[in-house]
């Protein structure tokens, strides 16, 4: 969808939330939902940070690492892409303590989701780096740059632009996966919606408000990433410089 439609949806969702919280008891449980939403935002931000770090590391290991590092990266990516996010969370939450490693649910959430999305992100980073035209590498050789200088100054900045849209999708995937932490006792937005529903039975407004709140967060990410893409494309038209 275009920027205009997305912005229109964002505004419409915000207005709908505002209007709904004016009616009946809705204002009462709205504060509970917002507290949950704040936790959701925190897990999303920290998880995204971890995902970007893991993805970049794994992709560079896989592309340029020595064989053991490459092997490690492949295992990480295949393992976390091969199993369910929920299974990974449960495993971290229920099984790791048996090996003497216990974490609080918040850390499990951030770690599990960050690792999961990071594995998908690794493929995004790898594809973007490989998508940079071979001539760019050759130019850096002709200018006698080291591989690391070439990566840092020439290749990664160009790959960065190509990575923005797929990362936008992954951040939204991560946001949506945060709902899973409600199943390991975290009071995020989904958890709040479910518990408030259990006590008040105001099913329709509660779940509608929760859905709209998630929609607002997703649209914010989408619009933000579009803006970032535009900003980094300014001046540089891809595909002509080769």
């Amino acid at each position: 969808m275009g920027m205009f439609s997305l912005s229109a949806m964002l505004v419409a969702a915000l207005i709908a939330i505002a209007i709904m919280s004016l009616f009946g008891d809705n204002a009462l449980f709205m504060s509970g939902l917002l507290q949950g939403a704040w936790l959701t935002v925190q897990i999303t931000l920290l998880g995204s940070l971890l995902a970007v770090i893991m993805a970049t590391t794994a992709a560079l290991f896989r592309l340029y690492g020595a064989p053991p590092l490459r092997w490690l990266a492949v295992t990480y990516v295949e393992f976390f892409r091969g199993t369910s996010a929920l299974v990974q969370l449960f495993w971290l939450f229920f099984v790791l303590p048996l090996f003497g490693i216990s974490m609080d649910p918040f850390s499990v959430g951030v770690l599990g989701l960050g690792l999961n999305i990071g594995a998908y992100g690794a493929e995004v980073v790898r594809g973007a780096v490989q998508g940079v035209h071979r001539g760019q590498w050759e130019a850096t050789t002709a200018l006698n740059m080291t591989r690391w200088q070439a990566l840092k100054r020439i290749i990664l900045p160009q790959a960065f632009v190509a990575m923005i849209p797929p990362w936008g999708n992954l951040f939204i995937e991560l946001l949506k996966s945060t709902a899973l932490v409600s199943l390991i006792t975290m009071s995020d937005l989904t958890f709040r919606a479910k518990t408030i529903n259990d006590t008040t039975m105001q099913t329709i407004p509660i779940f509608t408000l929760a859905l709209l709140t998630y929609l607002v967060m997703s649209l914010t990410i989408t619009i933000g990433m579009r803006w970032l893409e535009r900003a980094s494309l300014r001046g540089m038209v891809r595909g002509r410089g080769r």
């Binding site: 130019a139 002709a142 160009q158 080769r242």
Partner: peptide, 13 residues
């Protein structure tokens, strides 16, 4: 040694 390429290979960014 320096080299100039057929397709320039300038850094677009």
């Amino acid at each position: 040694i320096g080299m100039v390429f057929q397709h320039f290979n300038l850094f677009p960014h």
